[in-house]
Design a protein around this nucleic acid. Structure first.
Length: 816
RNA sequence: GCCGAAGUGGCGGAAUGGCAGACGCACUUGACUCAAAAUCAAGCGGGUUUCGACCUGUGUGGGUUCGAGUCCCACCUUCGGCACCA
């Protein structure tokens, strides 16, 4: 057995700390590389495999970059506000602040055991007043800019968590946190106007070096759709309403219109006879949970008794309400064209409403049964007959625009971000309600609005802060009269939407960050974290960056230049790890047994990083064996050097070893750069195998050369097994630290072979192999291939039609 | 239903359109050992074999190409996202 263990880990952790090896040198900011992993929630449990996979493996990438000469900035902090701490408190009585602080201390300890290059001088924690003061400041800046506002709206309510949720936090109609059904409630809540940036958030995606899948998810989430608003007058009322449509070309096919049940016009226009039915329907819809709504496929709706006037023909169109029209999208009203829309068609069939075709397929032979939703050529549309859908859209909207009845318009699926939460453990919203002055922002000089410690935080649907008398009662910052504080707290996603901006300057008490400094340090060059944040954190952070840019606080457009998502490590049974399945792999035991580098290196070697996969007990043992194998060779090297002697010439054996050496340097550098750690490690194994082969096969060794290659092996291994490599580096008699060594660069000349083996195919099947000079001409290769012994039988009695020569790889002889 | 990704040995996983299965695990054999472990060496997709080889093989079926795991079309399966967005 080798000597590597947690003892070696500790030795080097202490040395690194004492010598401040990883301390960020601000004077080298021109060489900076900001490498960031998504910070973690300080839960009571210890670091899990996922943390290691994210932080440990990314740290190896950052270490390589350091050796390549970058000044790496890799901070670590804690996303410390949030529901779990509060729920834990409700269960056990331990205050969220106390449990969070204890958890942070434990996690720090464990992160240090991992051996990451984190510079703890830059640590931050979102639940500290030092930090959330500036979260509140952010809120105020957005408020002043009109990007934070309060409104009453139907919002998602989780009965179990006793709070509202953002759209992004509702998954299949259920709370993302507790899986309980989400219901809709009309509540007055705070929103951030992320929709203001919808277009830029969409456009700028093209420039980002992000996984295509993630960009696609954001594109879809933003959901740009180009169309027009068309206004309909209500017959017999001084009222009108506007619909949004992407198919203005089908306007002549509109046979009725539908308002969302919550549409404000409904009360006004409903006829007395329909009153009861309409109200009953509205109540029923309001009662429905999101889940009911998703699972009901059958269309429902009620006639209001009122009619609208078709804007082109003046024809009477019945006005219905139905819950397939959403209050929160577009204008909350649609023109129904059953002939050319599946939903309208279904509804019209069920309620026996007229269906009029106004588009037919542009070419014959196309299935034209109704509903026909493709573009085509207009019919039954008077002066517009014969136009294509595309042309008709333009023409019809332009026509109506002249009389102020339509305009072109773009809509987005993205909704504004609901940020208030009826919970205790979050940043208080810095707003005061004054009976005289109304909604008043807390002056910046009075920040932070501190979260009081002694609060009754049992959830009952009211914000816990509402019960803290000392907190609630205050005086109005404007007029001084008695006033009340906002008692909701901010969604924790608000805290994490700007933490990467605070990291380079985390203790600044004057401003959230220094503009000049941040412009040098940002954007983050490499951001690594889970894919589950695609439409939440990653979208919010982009929004914050853009808003702060427009407010003049920073000068860049995007926060994260390059993004990588790690995969998920599954349990040994191939399922997601969960306590109930009993397949949870916890790092601690393995680290105690094998040392942290073996654990880290297995995570790099055993999986495709992006994909993840099932944990394997045998896999980690294989890595432990490899580490031992390297150590044995290092000891052998020390012995050889002590013996002295040997030759100094570079012969066949040396050339072969040198080839593998430079091939490894090239491959490891390229692979690790691409986060392909599994192949990088396998190349380390190949280099190790080559060293053994050389030692076994060469009777007379070039010890100086062998020593050079061995040093390279340790340099190349250092990012992936940092503690072990330091130890080996020292054992080889080299000076501290291997991480101050330059990363090896490959010599292209060493990769040029004099003789190469090529496969010879006849009609695509390999029949022989030939050895030719690497610089042989195509004619020479062709001649040698045609003369190859084992291809002869295949050339008899046929004629050679063609010979394809791919230099250094293959020859294909086509016969027939 | 729509959008996207992926299907390769017993397993984890490799392969700029150019010798499929790198590297490793498991397994088999041999060396060392009193023995085991560890280590070292060799073999290891499937089938046929006169032991020289030959055939077949990357989810299924077609296609493009001198040549396809890789590109194109259709389908099947799995996973992820969205789900009345007008």
């Amino acid at each position: 057995m080798g000597s590597y263990s947690t003892k070696v880990d500790r030795k080097w952790q202490e040395r690194w700390e004492k010598t401040r090896l990883y301390s960020f040198d601000r004077s080298r900011v021109d060489k900076k590389l900001y490498c960031l992993e998504m910070f973690s929630y300080p839960s009571g449990a210890k670091l899990h495999v996922g943390h290691w996979y994210n932080y440990g493996v990314t740290d190896s990438w950052a270490r390589m970059k350091r050796m390549q000469g970058y000044e790496v900035f890799q901070p670590m902090g804690f996303d410390a506000f949030g529901l779990p701490a509060e729920n834990f408190a409700i269960k056990t009585g331990v205050h969220p602040y106390d449990s969070t602080m204890a958890n942070i201390a434990t996690m720090q300890e464990q992160l240090k055991q991992m051996g990451g290059m984190f510079d703890w001088d830059y640590e931050l924690s979102t639940c500290e007043p030092e930090y959330y003061k500036w979260t509140q400041w952010m809120f105020l800046q957005l408020y002043k800019a009109g990007l934070a506002y309060r409104k009453e709206a139907p919002v998602n309510w989780c009965e179990h968590c006793q709070t509202v949720l953002a759209n992004e936090q509702v998954i299949d109609g259920c709370c993302e946190r507790c899986d309980q059904e989400v219901t809709r409630r009309n509540l007055t809540q705070w929103f951030f106007k992320i929709t203001e940036y919808a277009d830029e958030l969409l456009e700028k995606l093209d420039e980002l070096d992000w996984p295509e899948k993630t960009k696609q998810m954001q594109r879809h989430w933003i959901g740009k759709s180009v169309g027009a608003d068309i206004t309909f007058n209500v017959i017999g009322h001084e009222a009108s309403f506007t619909v949004f449509t992407t198919r203005a070309d089908t306007l002549l096919g509109a046979t009725y219109v539908v308002l969302a049940p919550e549409h404000p016009l409904v009360e006004q226009i409903t006829t007395p006879e329909q009153q009861a039915e309409v109200q009953a329907y509205q109540n029923e819809v309001a009662k429905q949970s999101e889940l009911d709504r998703l699972t009901t496929t059958e269309k429902t709706g009620v006639f209001t008794g009122a009619y609208a006037e078709h804007p082109l023909t003046g024809v009477k169109l019945p006005i219905w309400i139905a819950d397939y029209v959403l209050a929160s999208y577009g204008t909350g009203a649609v023109m129904a064209v059953p002939a050319h829309d599946e939903r309208d068609f279904e509804f019209a069939e069920k309620f026996d409403l007229p269906i009029v075709r106004v588009v037919r397929p542009a070419s014959d032979g196309v299935d034209d049964c109704l509903p026909f939703t493709d573009y085509g050529v207009l019919v039954n549309s008077g002066v517009y007959d014969g136009l294509t859908s595309e042309a008709a859209k333009e023409r019809i909207v332009a026509q109506l625009a002249k009389v102020g009845r339509a305009e072109f318009r773009t809509n987005y699926r993205l909704r504004d971000w609901l940020v208030s939460r009826q919970r205790y453990w979050g940043a208080p919203i810095p707003i005061v309600y004054c009976p005289e002055c109304g909604t008043v922002p807390v002056p910046e000089s009075e920040l932070p609005v501190e979260l009081p410690y002694d609060v009754e935080f049992t959830p009952d649907g009211k914000s816990p802060l509402a019960k803290a008398e000392d907190f609630v009662h205050t005086s109005c910052p404007q007029c001084g009269s008695a006033a009340e504080r906002e008692v909701d707290t901010l969604d924790t996603f608000v805290c994490s939407s700007w933490y990467f901006l605070r990291f380079p300057d985390p203790h600044n008490s004057e401003v959230p960050f220094d503009k000049e400094w941040i412009n040098k340090m940002l954007p983050v060059d490499m951001y690594v974290g889970g894919a589950e944040h695609a439409c939440m954190h990653l979208l919010y952070a982009r929004f914050f960056t853009k808003a702060l840019r427009d407010l003049g606080y920073l000068d860049f457009d995007e926060p994260f230049t390059k993004l990588v998502h790690q995969g998920i490590i599954l349990g040994p049974d191939g399922n997601r790890m969960s306590k109930s399945r009993g397949n949870v792999v916890s790092p601690d035991g393995y680290i105690a047994e094998f040392g942290s580098d073996v654990f880290r290196m297995y995570l790099q070697f055993g999986f495709n990083y992006i994909e993840g996969g099932p944990w394997s007990e045998d896999g980690i043992r294989a890595v432990a064996r490899f580490v031992d194998r390297v150590e044995r060779f290092i000891d052998r090297m020390v012995e050889l050097k002590a013996q002295g002697g040997g030759k100094t010439t570079i012969d066949k054996g040396e050339k072969e070893l040198n080839f593998v050496r430079h091939q490894s340097i090239k491959g490891i550098t390229e692979d690790a750069d691409k986060f392909q750690f599994n192949t990088a490690i396998s190349r380390l194994m190949e280099l190790t195998n080559a060293l053994y082969r050389y030692d076994n096969e060469q009777d007379e060794k070039n010890v100086a050369f062998l020593s050079e290659v061995t040093d390279d092996l340790v340099r190349l291994m250092a990012p992936f097994a940092p503690h072990f490599s330091e130890e080996m580096w020292e054992r080889l008699g080299n000076s501290y630290s291997v991480f101050n060594q330059a990363w090896p660069e490959h010599d292209p000349a060493a990769l040029e072979r004099e003789v190469v083996e090529m496969a010879v195919q006849v009609n695509g099947r390999v029949r022989d192999r030939i050895e030719v000079a690497a610089d042989a001409s195509e004619e020479d290769v062709r001649a040698i291939a045609l003369a190859a012994e084992k291809v002869q039988p295949y050339l008899e009695g046929v004629s050679v039609r063609k010979v394809i020569v791919i230099p250094k790889r293959i020859v294909n002889i086509v016969v027939g």
